[in-house]
Amino acid sequence: MTLPEVSPERLAEEWAADKDVLQSLAENGDVAHLVRLIDVSFRGSEAALDRLEESAEELGFEVIEREEDEEDGEISLFLGCEQAADAAAIKALTLKCLQIELLYDVEYDGWGCTAEDGTGQNGQD
């Protein structure tokens, strides 16, 4: 599967937000190179999310859940992958998610994970 090219402006916009999340993780004692579950979310029509869910494994993700927002009825699909949360790994993940956004006609809504300090106290070491 060939993923489409993302505009540099769109990537820069997401990367600016990613850097804030990475800084927050670091302030909470995160050891960025530790591999953990990173979740990503996409919003879109049910048909578009169905197509993405069917391709999740091929794209390197596992399906976590689908959720409907009680206020606006928007549907979100949460996918996960095991990886580190260092800057290079997150930038590559964000690029891939923006490519998925274009390919599947969905809206990438960001990523998240727990801070991992290597002591096993944060639930996913």
Rank of each mutant, 00 (worst) to 15 (best):
E82D: 10
G118T: 12
P8W: 01
R66F: 07
R36N: 01
G44Y: 02
D20K: 10
M1E: 14
E71P: 03
E70R: 15
D125E: 13
K19N: 10
D30R: 00
N122T: 10
D117V: 03
I64R: 13
L93R: 03
G112S: 12
D72V: 13
F61K: 04
K91I: 04
P4Q: 01
M1C: 12
Q124S: 11
L98Q: 03
E62S: 12
A17N: 09
D109P: 07
Q83N: 05
E116Y: 04
I100E: 06
E27A: 10
D86G: 11
G123D: 11
L11A: 06
E58Q: 15
G110N: 12
R36Y: 05
I64Y: 13
V40K: 03
L77T: 07
G123T: 07
S41L: 01
V63A: 00
Q124A: 05
L11S: 04
E54D: 14
G44H: 04
R51K: 14
E14Y: 03
G60F: 02
E116F: 08
V40C: 04
Q83K: 09
G112L: 08
H33P: 08
K96H: 11
S24V: 11
I64C: 12
E65S: 06
L98H: 02
G60N: 00
T94Y: 09
G123F: 15
S7L: 06
C97M: 02
P4H: 04
D125I: 03
S41N: 04
L93S: 05
D117L: 05
A16P: 10
V21P: 05
L103N: 11
